[in-house]
Simulated assay, not measured.
Amino acid sequence: MAWAGNQTLISHFVLLGLFTHTPLHLLLFSIIMVMFLVALSGNGLMILVINVDSRLHSPMYFFLSWLSLMDLMLISTIVPRMATDFLLGRGSISFTGCGLQILFFLTLLGDECFLLAFMAYDRYVAISNPLRYSVVMNRRVCWLMVGGSWLFGLVDGLIQAVFTLRFPYCGSQEIDHFFCEVPAVLKLACADTSLYETMIYVCCVLMLLLPFSVISTSYLQILVAVLRMHSAKGRRKAFATCSSHMAVVTLFYGAAMITYMQPQIYHSSKQDKVVSAFYTMITPMLNPLIYSLRNKEVTGALRKLMGRCPCSGEQG
């Protein structure tokens, strides 16, 4: 403990978690763990298949492999710690540990925000300008997009982690959340955080609204191109793909916007926990299903990979 005037500064936080030990919450905890395993296996499999099969070495699958890696890391930053706290019945986390969790989480969240925008632009170029696709989306451009995503995410994560933990915390140690999320941590600060909250809002306009605007514009242009298709079957397929993509993207960005762009006075602990579960657990599980496993090229590559596996019982 440290002292600030007549107030005692706390040296660690206590995460209250997502569940209590009731039968219903035990069931929900089991469902979360199944989702975690599905997300790990689904995203891990996508990374393996895309890197092993040369037919999937194109910009679209290059971005999908990075999305899977980000999702795998994002859910691993949150769920194992939450599960350990629940099973051991304690949720103590040091200032340093809390800061690192904020850093990793916001870095990965920011990475994914920008990567999803670049993926939407990639699909726009592929559908609207297929003849110039290989020129516009060359290898160097793809690496710059991925590198830019990581850079923007890291800068955002560093800024928010450093500034959040610079506030004095001298009241309750209990964070009514299942991980160190900035709005939940700021509730415990014994200082005026209004200026910092304004800064967070500005950051979120750049990290959330700007990429979401790019995605919406890209898919609108794709929709226009799809409507011009002569093939009814092609239109149905494109509509089905785009609608599923937009559903997951809207879920991801919408939940993040509610958490980071809504004024503190409108936040409630129960709402924050439920909303946070969408972009920390649900979308990392859904992304490999929506973006990859429904894709015929990916499922074909997956079957080919399974055929090579000695445990499949097939003879080479």
Rank of each mutant, 00 (worst) to 15 (best):
Ala225Thr: 11
Asp122Gln: 15
Pro23Ser: 06
Thr77Asp: 13
Lys270Ile: 09
Leu208Met: 07
Leu16Glu: 14
Ile265Met: 10
His230Cys: 09
Leu18Met: 13
Val185Ser: 03
Thr107Ser: 12
Ile10Gln: 07
Ser216Cys: 09
Ala277Gly: 11
Ala126Phe: 08
Val224Gly: 03
His21Phe: 09
Phe13His: 03
Tyr196Trp: 06
Ala240Cys: 13
Tyr219Ser: 05
Arg90Tyr: 08
Met306Tyr: 10
Thr77Lys: 01
Pro211Ser: 02
Ser134Asp: 15
Val249Ile: 11
Leu74Gly: 08
Ile47Met: 15
Gly148Ile: 04
Gly110Val: 02
Ala191Trp: 01
Tyr266Asp: 06
Met33Pro: 00
Phe167Met: 04
Arg55Ile: 04
Leu223Phe: 15
Met46Tyr: 09
Phe104Met: 13
Leu9Ala: 11
Tyr291His: 10
Cys190Lys: 03
Ser172Leu: 01
Gly234Asn: 12
His25Arg: 02
His12Met: 04
Val135Arg: 14
Ser194Gly: 02
Val182Trp: 00
Ser231Glu: 05
Phe252Asp: 06
Ile222Gln: 10
Val274Gln: 06
Gly147Phe: 03
Tyr133Gln: 14
Gly89Asn: 05
Ser30Lys: 01
Ser244Glu: 07
Leu227Ile: 04
Tyr266Ser: 06
Leu223Pro: 01
Trp143Met: 10
Phe278Trp: 07
Ala256Gln: 11
Val162Pro: 02
Ala184His: 03
Phe239Leu: 12
His21Asn: 13
Ala4Trp: 15
Asp272Asn: 11
Glu112Phe: 13
Asp111Cys: 15
Ala117Cys: 04
Gly91Pro: 10
His230Asp: 15
Val162Ser: 11
Phe62Pro: 00
Ser243Ala: 09
Ser218Gly: 12
Leu286Tyr: 08
Ile282Glu: 05
Ile159Gly: 04
Pro168Tyr: 01
Thr77Arg: 01
Ile75Phe: 00
Arg308Cys: 06
Met285His: 06
Met285Ala: 14
Lys187Trp: 02
Ser194Trp: 00
Pro310Tyr: 03
Ser231Leu: 00
Met137Ala: 07
Gly313Val: 02
His12Arg: 10
Ala184Met: 11
Pro183Ala: 02
Lys296Glu: 12
Leu188Trp: 02
Asn287Ile: 13
Met119Asn: 14
Pro288Cys: 04
Arg90Gln: 15
Leu64Arg: 15
Phe179Gln: 05
Phe19Ile: 01
Ser41Tyr: 13
Ala184Gln: 14
Ala126Ile: 05
Val298Gln: 04
Leu116Gln: 09
Leu64His: 15
Ser68Cys: 13
Val52Ile: 14
Cys180Val: 08
Asn287Glu: 09
Ala277His: 04
Cys204Thr: 07
Phe36Ser: 01
Leu109Lys: 11
Ser65Thr: 13
Leu9Trp: 00
Lys273Asn: 08
Leu16Thr: 14
Arg236Ile: 09
Ser41Glu: 12
Ala256Val: 09
